[in-house]
Design a protein around this nucleic acid. Sequence first.
DNA 1: TAGATTGTTAATCGATTAACAATC
DNA 2: TAGATTGTTAATCGATTAACAATC
Lengths: 202, 202
Amino acid sequence: MPISEEIRRLLRYRICLEKFKRFGWETTFSYTIGKESGVSSEQIRKDFSQFKIEGHKKGGYNINEILAKINQIFRKDITNYFVIMGMGNIGEALINYPGFEKHNIKIAGAFDIDPVKIKKKYRVPIYHMDMLPEIVKKYKVKIAVIAVPAIAAQEVCYYLIDCGIVGIMNFSPIILKTPDSVNVYNIELIPVLEGLIYHSNN
Amino acid sequence: MPISEEIRRLLRYRICLEKFKRFGWETTFSYTIGKESGVSSEQIRKDFSQFKIEGHKKGGYNINEILAKINQIFRKDITNYFVIMGMGNIGEALINYPGFEKHNIKIAGAFDIDPVKIKKKYRVPIYHMDMLPEIVKKYKVKIAVIAVPAIAAQEVCYYLIDCGIVGIMNFSPIILKTPDSVNVYNIELIPVLEGLIYHSNN
DNA sequence: TAGATTGTTAATCGATTAACAATC
DNA sequence: TAGATTGTTAATCGATTAACAATC
């Protein structure tokens, strides 16, 4: 069950609409969003129709209305928590990444097994992995990031699922085995670079 | 021009095949790769056929042969260089990321405009952005990672294109404007998390 | 009104899946 | 040989694109 293209496009539109809002615009047209987002205007109207976002014939769409609807679709009214497994380079970068809070997403905690890392002070509490069930329960966490070494990734993945995690963003370069009910999104750094290199040669 | 699914699947197969090799296997079947990679065996045979990877009826595929062919497709015989724009959290994480060299990919240099960051010692040389054309020329760089703040991303993107970059991995949360000839892959951290959250609620 | 824009329905396209002949 | 597996061709499916009626 991958993240649908439709959902990703909605979030692309949001980026454009926020830009338009900064321009001081109040309304816009499917064609205008299309030019900014690189999506065809027909596709945009179809997506909007699917999610019951209504426009005005000739008058276009009210920017605040679309944004409100998108925020509603993504339940931005409540804070969503996620956890980070592994405090290596990537885990550390994510902890310092600004912009989660702007979208009402918060890190409930980060987890490692190295006592040195657990002791270090960060913007977010670092726990031993044994603490995971407790934190998941406390913050009703459904989403996790796997940023542990490849060798440990599958084991951590099983542990996450046991703890009730249903969505995983995976930075490790392995193919995780998960039940169908769990949604995995792989951040494939090496494959993306190799793909770009491939296209640059062809 | 996005990275094709076919190309990404090939790299998925590689992960599986390298695992099989560690098991000591010499041959395998489309069905076996399928079970490991989560891709259907028909799809795998079709992909192999497309890239002229041949098997033996009843005997399956020779693992080393497929790996050699994949390495040939991705030109792993030569070292491919890329540059990193921006030495924030993500730029720093990438510099310390192990595994690029294993795939014969190297960071030609990282670039920033902050003199403090340029002076700091890392595993990779850090240059002022003015040095970009020189390094691109020296290492024949075609690929860049954008890891600068959102506000600077578009400008850096134009600069990269001027310097001859044709493939971009973009970590900034904006939609880059590029000519069709340039291949952009967006690492959408926030949209992925929001997508996972959406699916966990639906 | 005439022109512009939405929103829906139909057509197209490409990618995936199924089927099966070839053959080891 | 019989059974298993490849490799290709045909069928299906879903997503995108085109067309156009509705209407402001």
